[in-house]
C-alpha cells in the first residue's frame, strides 16, 4: 500500500531510489491512479522489454512544477516530458503531458520513500 495520509498526500519524502536525491517533501503530492507507459529505468530491463517499458498505475500527482525539490525534465517526446532525478539522471521516474500544464506524475514504484 502507498505510504499515504488519509487525505492522500504523501506522508514521507520522495527520494531517488539510486542516489537519494530529494524529489518531493512530505505532503507535496497526492496519490493518483493512472495507467501510463514509462520507458524502462535500467539498461537490462530496457533490453528485456525490447526497448519498450513498464505500465505503471500508482503515482504521486504534483500540481505545481515548483513543488518539486529537485527534478529534471527531458526534452519533449511528442507532447510528453519525462521526469528524471536531478542529481544522477536516473529515470524516467515520472511523466508530464504538455496538454495538461498542472499535472506531474511520479511513479511510486520508481522512487524511494523515507
Amino acid at each position: 500500500p502507498p505510504p499515504a495520509q488519509p487525505l492522500g498526500r504523501n506522508l514521507k519524502a520522495v527520494l531517488c531510489q539510486r542516489c537519494g536525491s530529494r524529489v518531493l517533501l512530505p505532503g507535496a503530492a497526492t496519490f493518483a491512479h493512472r495507467e501510463l507507459l514509462l520507458p524502462a529505468m535500467r539498461k537490462k530491463a530496457a533490453a528485456a522489454a525490447g526497448g519498450g517499458g513498464d505500465v505503471v498505475r500508482e503515482h504521486w500527482l504534483v500540481r505545481d512544477m515548483f513543488s518539486f525539490e529537485n527534478v529534471g525534465f527531458t526534452r519533449d517526446v511528442g507532447n510528453v516530458k519525462f521526469l528524471v532525478c536531478a542529481d544522477c539522471e536516473a529515470g524516467p521516474i515520472g511523466w508530464h503531458c504538455l496538454d495538461d500544464k498542472d499535472s506531474f506524475y511520479v511513479a511510486l514504484e520508481r522512487v524511494a520513500h523515507e
Partner: peptide
C-alpha cells in the same frame, strides 16, 4: 546506469531547491 533512452532525448531543464 543511465539508459540510452534519457541520454538520447536529453534534458531540457532542472529544478533545484
Amino acid at each position: 546506469f543511465n539508459t540510452t533512452f534519457i541520454s538520447t532525448i536529453g534534458i531540457d531543464f532542472k529544478i533545484r531547491t
